[in-house]
C-alpha cells in the first residue's frame, strides 16, 4: 500500500476528491493540496487506482467506424503544415470553452494595450484601451478537470508573454513553475508562477522561438524557489496549449 502514515482524514479527502463528491471551498482546498503536497497527491493517485477497478466491469463497445476520423479531424492531424486550418478546427472543437477563453483573452488584450511600454517583469495595470491586430496566442493552463491555474497570452510581435494567475493558491514551502514544453527537447522554464496580478515577461529569442500555435505549456509543483536543475523536478499539475485569438 502507498499508505505511508497519511492522516486518515487526508486519506478520506483524497477519496472524496477522486469520487468528485466535493464542491466549493472544500473542492478548491483539496485540489490545492493535491498540487502542493506530494504525500496527498500520492494518496489521490492510490484512490484513482483503487476505484478504477470499478471500470474493469464496463464492457468495451466498439465505437462507430467514423469515430477515428472525427478525432483526427478535431486535431487536424492530417495536415499539420496547414496551421491556419488546423487551429481553426481546434478552435471549433474547443468551442465549449471558447466563451470563457474569449472573455479572458479580451481582458488580456486590453491589458496588453496599456502594458506595451513595459519592459522586463512588471505588473500590468487594469485595461483602459484596445489594440489593433497582433499575433496573439493564448492558453488556459489547467489540470485534469480543474479550473485554470493561470492564463498565458503570447504576443509574437514583440516576443512577450503575459501570465495571469487564476485559481492559484500559495503554499508555504512550495512554488509553481511555468514551462514551455517543446515538441522535441527538454522543457524550458518560463519562471515561477505566483498568485497576484498579471505579469509581463519579455522573452529571449530562443525561448520566443518555441512559442507557437499548438505549443504546450505546463506548470509543475516545485520546492520553494523553483527547480534547481533547470528541468521540472516535481509533478506536472497543469498543462495548456497555445491557440491564436
Amino acid at each position: 500500500m502507498t499508505d505511508s502514515g497519511i492522516d486518515p482524514d487526508d486519506g478520506l479527502l483524497a477519496a472524496e476528491l477522486v469520487l468528485r463528491l466535493l464542491e466549493g471551498d472544500a473542492l478548491h482546498d483539496a485540489r490545492r493540496r493535491e498540487v502542493a503536497e506530494p504525500a496527498f497527491a500520492a494518496e489521490v493517485a492510490a484512490w484513482h487506482e483503487r476505484l478504477a477497478a470499478l471500470l474493469a466491469d464496463v464492457a468495451p463497445i466498439e465505437p462507430d467506424a467514423a469515430m477515428w476520423g472525427r478525432v483526427s479531424a478535431a486535431l487536424a492531424l492530417r495536415d499539420p503544415r496547414n496551421n491556419v486550418v488546423e487551429l481553426k478546427r481546434k478552435v471549433r472543437f474547443w468551442r465549449a470553452s471558447a466563451a470563457a477563453l474569449t472573455a479572458i483573452a479580451a481582458s488580456l488584450l486590453l491589458g496588453l494595450g496599456l502594458g506595451m511600454g513595459l519592459r522586463g517583469t512588471e505588473s500590468i495595470q487594469p485595461p483602459a484601451t484596445t489594440v489593433g491586430p497582433r499575433q496573439m496566442l493564448i492558453a488556459a493552463i489547467d489540470g485534469e478537470g480543474t479550473p485554470p491555474l493561470a492564463v498565458v497570452s503570447v504576443d509574437r510581435t514583440d516576443k512577450s508573454l503575459i501570465v495571469t494567475p487564476a485559481a492559484l493558491t500559495p503554499v508555504a514551502g512550495h512554488d509553481h513553475e511555468l514551462w514551455i514544453v517543446p515538441v522535441a527537447g527538454d522543457p524550458r522554464s518560463l519562471g515561477l508562477l505566483r498568485p497576484g496580478p498579471a505579469r509581463r515577461i519579455v522573452l529571449a529569442d530562443d525561448l520566443a522561438g518555441l512559442l507557437a500555435g499548438g505549443s504546450t505549456l505546463a506548470v509543475s509543483a516545485e520546492d520553494e524557489g523553483g527547480s534547481r536543475t533547470g528541468l521540472p523536478q516535481g509533478p506536472i499539475v497543469a498543462t495548456g496549449t497555445l491557440r491564436p485569438v
Binding site: 487506482e49 465505437p63 469515430m67 472525427r70 472543437f93 504546450t216 498543462t239
Partner: peptide, 21 residues
C-alpha cells in the same frame, strides 16, 4: 470520446508511468 482523445493528445506529456497505470 472525441473530447477524451483530444485530452489525451493534449496531456499525454503529463502521464507518468512511474506514478500511474
Amino acid at each position: 470520446l472525441q473530447d477524451i482523445f483530444v485530452t489525451i493528445w493534449k496531456r499525454a506529456g503529463t502521464f507518468d508511468a512511474e506514478r500511474a497505470s
